[in-house]
Simulated assay, not measured.
Amino acid sequence: MNQTASHSQTPEFDTNKSQTTSVLFQPPKPEEIRLSFWSKAKPVLKEFAAIALIGITVASTVLTVRSCSNDVDRQHAQALKHQLQFSASNEGAR
């Protein structure tokens, strides 16, 4: 009669061990660690494309301005030549 009755409904476990430690952290698999060539090359190609686009824009602007400047100089020289041609012929006719 030395036994005591247990009125608790909670189960008893052998050890006090956490059941979530294996779920919280799992080491990455080798295929997750190793990156493919395209996943490494994609950011590099994007940066190269952006730099190339900026370079092409700047170069085309400079070349366009230079071309227009040369065209204006050529037209100015032709206009002076044309004026001198007619001014010389008018001087002789007077």
Rank of each mutant, 00 (worst) to 15 (best):
I56R: 07
Q78S: 06
C68K: 14
A59K: 04
Q9N: 09
S18D: 00
L53S: 06
F48W: 12
G55E: 08
I33N: 02
V58L: 15
M1L: 03
S18R: 09
A93S: 08
L53P: 06
S6V: 15
Q75L: 05
S6C: 14
I33D: 02
A41Q: 06
E32Y: 00
L84I: 09
S87G: 02
E12Q: 07
I56D: 03
P28N: 04
I51Y: 00
E32K: 01
A93Y: 10
A52R: 05
F48Y: 11
S18W: 14
S87H: 05
F48L: 14
Q19N: 07
E91D: 13
K29R: 12
Q85N: 09
K17C: 03
S60F: 12
N70E: 12
M1D: 10
F25C: 01
A88P: 05
S36V: 08
C68Q: 08
R34D: 04
Q19V: 06
E32M: 02
P27K: 14
P43R: 07
C68W: 12
P11G: 05
T10D: 04
E32A: 01
A49H: 11
F48D: 13
H7F: 14
Q19W: 06
L35R: 15
P30K: 12
E32H: 03
F86C: 00
W38G: 01
P11I: 14
S87Y: 00
Q75Y: 07
H76S: 13
K17P: 04
A5E: 12
T20R: 01
C68F: 15
E12S: 14
R74L: 13
G55L: 12
A50Q: 03
F37Y: 15
